[in-house]
Design a binder for these strands. Structure first.
Lengths: 224, 224
DNA sequence: TCATCAAGTAACCGTTTAGTTACTGTCCGG
DNA sequence: CCGGACAGTAACTAAACGGTTACTTGATGA
């Protein structure tokens, strides 16, 4: 795309820059990444505008292409950063420190509250799944990131099984999918749900009730 | 957008049409709607292309704008039709015909299998929620469509409470949200989930296990 | 049989879009 | 103190986009 290299371009006089030069590569890079996170999560891959990202970041397209290559690579960076965010916070939980039941409850609470606090993460997941994980599959950074969660969850479930409080068929991935399902759907689909059922799902009382519901349902599904 | 009406347009000779004229308004309309459903569910609102819809429908843009006004109205039509589809099928269930427990199990099974058979519906919901129900809120057709579900579900739960098999605090909307959450997340997020956890969620054994899990979890959450 | 009107076609238009180029300002090692 | 590397700017471009116009074709009923 762009020039074909043929001669006689118009030479145009440029006015001196209005804005003060930042000259702070780290800050500019971070600003672009944050602006891109907002733009992609609000508009999806097809709806996001490169110009809008540059403007939101207080810079211009040139810098965006300079630091991230193109729109798709920038999107992948945003997605990777979002996954790193939740998995890093998750690691600090140490769900094996208390009783198995408390550990599972803790993971459920954490996941729900993280989703509630970071709706842009859910939105990015939705966009990525719309495109059948096209970009995530290309990611080289995200192979070892998620195994920690499953390992730790397996340990907690095994301890619960040995103590006789969890059923033997309890599967770690299924437990996590249960927790994530109940949180994801409630938050990401709140707009259509509130519209068609006429109940404001984001009211504090409803949010608190659903939080208790998630913990209750998750434990009920694996308890003996 | 488009012309401003100023004079002297170029008059161009047109070749006779290559394709045989269909001259079947019903068929053309339906073809556009189906093509639009696929295009919007595969690419979202921002990623869908009007040209692509016309081509997929075997017609051209003129007809699309003739029947549906513009891209946004066409999208709303697609969304409304999708909602009518699931709610219509749901009505034929008659979940009150058997025991309360069987009724809830039946609704859970139906919802799961409908989601599995119509991933394009889930995709459209995702797109609509990305835009905070911007178009659904404008819909005049979809006010009374969903109340039937809640009414019937309330009756089944009440019968179960009187029979002493369901807890008194069981809430009809929460029961439906539980069922829908577990089905929606598993299917719509299958691509990222399979990628990061390395388990193929669409394998028959996994699908069957999750189906049983949904029924089990839903009943476990409301049984005394 | 022919006027009329809806169905259908393809070129066209103005705007937007991702991506590029030509150029300027600033810092820092030699 | 100077020259090259890099941060930063804004105008620019080809292509794609949603939407419109000018025109053709076919069916129908007076």
């Amino acid at each position: 795309m762009g020039m074909d290299g043929s001669g006689d371009k118009k030479i145009v006089k440029r006015r001196p820059a209005d804005r003060v030069l930042q000259r702070d590569p780290e800050r500019t890079r971070a600003a672009i990444l944050e602006a891109a996170t907002r733009e992609f999560s609000e508009n999806g891959m097809g709806g996001a505008r490169v110009d809008a990202i540059a403007e939101r970041a207080g810079t211009n397209k040139r810098m965006l292409y300079h630091y991230f290559g193109d729109k798709e690579q920038l999107y992948l960076h945003v997605l990777e950063e979002a996954y790193v965010g939740i998995r890093t916070a998750e690691r600090e939980l140490h769900i094996g420190d208390r009783s198995p039941e408390e550990g599972i409850a803790e993971l459920a609470l954490f996941t729900w509250r993280y989703f509630l606090k970071h709706p842009e993460f859910l939105s990015l997941l939705g966009t990525e799944n719309l495109h059948r994980a096209r970009w995530l599959r290309q990611s080289v950074r995200l192979k070892e990131l998620h195994s920690h969660l499953i390992v730790e969850l397996t340990q907690v479930l095994d301890r619960g099984k040995q103590a006789g409080v969890f059923i033997d068929t309890a599967d770690p991935l299924n437990v996590y999918l249960t927790i994530a399902s109940l949180g994801y759907f409630y938050i990401s689909n709140q707009y259509t749900l509130s519209t068609i059922f006429g109940r404001e799902l984001t009211e504090k009382t409803n949010l608190d009730a659903w939080e208790r519901h998630i913990v209750h349902v998750t434990l009920a599904s694996i308890k003996t």
